[in-house]
Computed example of a mutant assay.
Amino acid sequence: MPDAVRTSAVRAVLIMSLTLIQAMVAFLCTLTGSWLAFPMVVGGVAGTVVATWSVLDVWVTRQVWNQRNGVVSVPSSTARRMRRERRRARRAARAAERDGTGIRRRRENSGDLSRA
């Protein structure tokens, strides 16, 4: 994972964990009937909005990084070499088949126009 994406992901995880802790405190304050319940619920709603924004930030940062820098993974040279060899073998087989049967076909079908 690139550094920019990693930074925004760590930030998002920290914000989400703090929001979950705040939601749990708001829930417990509500159960006990504490005066802190309402401010904690309002803070929990605000924290949820910020956590959602931070997750979107991770997604946007990743998309921007991919667009600017492209995909990192490249096929290995071994795979590329094997693909080239298979391609050459197929071409050689088609060329041999074309050369071998083409001459016979011409000789066999040379009188087709007069027979029709």
Score class of each variant (00 low, 15 high):
109 N>Y: 10
12 A>Y: 00
77 S>D: 12
58 V>S: 09
35 W>N: 14
41 V>A: 08
62 R>F: 08
110 S>G: 01
31 L>Y: 02
9 A>I: 01
58 V>K: 03
31 L>F: 04
34 S>D: 09
88 R>S: 07
7 T>P: 00
75 P>A: 13
12 A>S: 06
91 R>I: 02
77 S>P: 07
63 Q>W: 02
61 T>C: 04
97 E>P: 02
82 M>A: 08
60 V>F: 11
68 R>M: 13
100 G>E: 14
32 T>S: 15
80 R>W: 03
60 V>H: 10
103 I>K: 06
110 S>Y: 03
70 G>S: 14
35 W>Y: 14
101 T>H: 12
7 T>W: 02
48 T>H: 02
34 S>C: 06
92 A>C: 08
7 T>C: 04
64 V>P: 00
7 T>N: 05
3 D>Y: 06
91 R>C: 09
56 L>T: 02
32 T>E: 12
93 A>I: 04
78 T>Y: 08
23 A>V: 14
79 A>E: 04
15 I>Q: 06
50 V>Q: 01
50 V>C: 01
48 T>P: 00
32 T>P: 03
33 G>Y: 01
98 R>H: 07
7 T>L: 07
57 D>M: 04
59 W>T: 14
11 R>E: 14
75 P>R: 05
40 M>A: 15
30 T>N: 13
76 S>Y: 01
20 L>R: 09
93 A>L: 12
83 R>T: 10
51 A>T: 03
5 V>P: 00
13 V>W: 00
101 T>G: 10
79 A>T: 07
39 P>M: 07
91 R>T: 03
17 S>T: 15
106 R>W: 10
88 R>Y: 08
94 R>K: 07
102 G>A: 08
99 D>H: 07
73 S>M: 13
60 V>L: 07
80 R>C: 04
42 V>L: 15
19 T>A: 15
98 R>I: 05
78 T>C: 06
45 V>L: 11
108 E>S: 14
34 S>K: 11
93 A>R: 11
38 F>N: 09
102 G>L: 03
29 C>E: 02
70 G>N: 10
40 M>I: 04
11 R>F: 03
88 R>E: 07
71 V>T: 15
33 G>T: 04
110 S>C: 05
51 A>K: 00
22 Q>C: 06
47 G>D: 01
40 M>S: 13
29 C>H: 05
83 R>G: 10
43 G>T: 11
25 V>E: 12
53 W>H: 13
47 G>H: 00
58 V>C: 07
8 S>H: 01
76 S>R: 07
97 E>D: 13
32 T>L: 15
41 V>E: 00
98 R>C: 02
80 R>A: 10
90 R>H: 08
39 P>A: 12
17 S>D: 14
19 T>E: 09
22 Q>L: 15
60 V>R: 14
31 L>Q: 05
